[in-house]
Amino acid sequence: MKAFLGMGLLGSNFVRAMIQKGEQVQIWNRTAAKARALETYGAKAFDDVTEAVKGATTIHVTLKDDDTVNEVLAMAGKGLEPGAIIIDHTTTSAKGAAERTAAWKAKGYTYLHAPVFMGPQNALESTGNMLVSGDQDVISRVEPELSKMTGKVLNLGPEEGKAAGMKLIGNLFLLTLTAGLTDTLSLAKSLGIPSGDVSALFESWNPGATMPARFKRITEGNFKQASWELNMARKDAGLMMDAAKHGETALSLIPVIAAVMDDWIAKGHGNDDWSVIAQDAIS
């Protein structure tokens, strides 16, 4: 028997996928109606989280943050079966994940943090990526269970909390990518260029293909042989901001980047590759 706590978009679709595979799942959500809605698919919903985990050997969790996970697991504690395994898919801090691993082990339970790069549709289709790190014996024991839930389980090694850290790193990239696309569309709007034309540009020219080489240049600290000088990149940033101002649109990311560029130019790096602005991140 399994239990699942947290019936948001991700958790509810994980549950539906489990039921489709013939598994019995007891569920709980703070807003009880969200859990009861899944009874139509065959889940057994409980208003009391303590009752929801009774009889379950594995408890999956998808909640909001560290505090919510701690609060809900504390409430569920009285109903846990001896030796139960808690698998937490919540995006949390690395420190919190490591602390929970130790705290629940001291109580006689196994806690494994397994955050995901998966959307609701991935959860329903059992595709995407799930991250794990920590006790390798624990991971080898639960990996068959996790593999049923996702397309790929990425084992990041024995360091507690590393999976949480890597999830935050990935999410940071997604946030900055979206912010960059927002500025891109804002500049296009200010220039009177339709978004469809921007899309066509990216279909022909894929800037993402340059990322491995850019990442390698940064991590190796190779800034002296410039492919795009910082002075020239800053000039272009100025043109972008001027165009946006003229078109009465707002850029959120580029002005911040321009200010960082100015700092590095003031330090004497104007003729270096523009990626020198990342130097402090690797030194």
Rank of each mutant, 00 (worst) to 15 (best):
L253C: 10
T58N: 12
L146H: 04
L187S: 01
G128P: 00
L239V: 07
V116G: 08
I139E: 14
G119S: 10
A233K: 06
M118Q: 15
P120F: 15
S126R: 10
V15T: 05
L38R: 03
K148V: 09
P115F: 01
I59H: 08
T182Q: 08
R217I: 03
A179M: 12
G151I: 02
K245V: 07
M7W: 08
M241V: 06
K162I: 12
W104V: 05
N206R: 11
T182G: 05
I257P: 03
I282G: 00
D135M: 11
E229K: 06
S275L: 11
W274T: 08
P158Q: 13
L112S: 04
S93F: 02
I59M: 06
E71C: 00
K44E: 14
D272M: 07
R100E: 04
V61E: 01
V25L: 01
D197Q: 14
T219N: 15
G157S: 06
N271K: 15
A84Q: 06
P207K: 05
T92Q: 07
E248T: 11
G42H: 00
W274Q: 13
E203F: 02
V61M: 00
G11L: 08
N171T: 15
T92N: 08
Q20R: 13
L175C: 13
K267P: 04
V138F: 12
W228N: 09
G221K: 12
L185P: 00
V276D: 06
G161R: 02
L187F: 00
R234A: 15
M211V: 13
L181V: 14
I265E: 09
D262M: 07
T40R: 13
A237I: 00
G79Y: 12
F202Q: 02
G83C: 01
K34N: 01
M7N: 09
G270D: 14
A123Y: 03
A74D: 14
A123H: 03
K245Q: 14
P194I: 07
D48F: 13
N122G: 10
I139G: 10
P212C: 02
N271V: 13
T58G: 00
G270W: 05
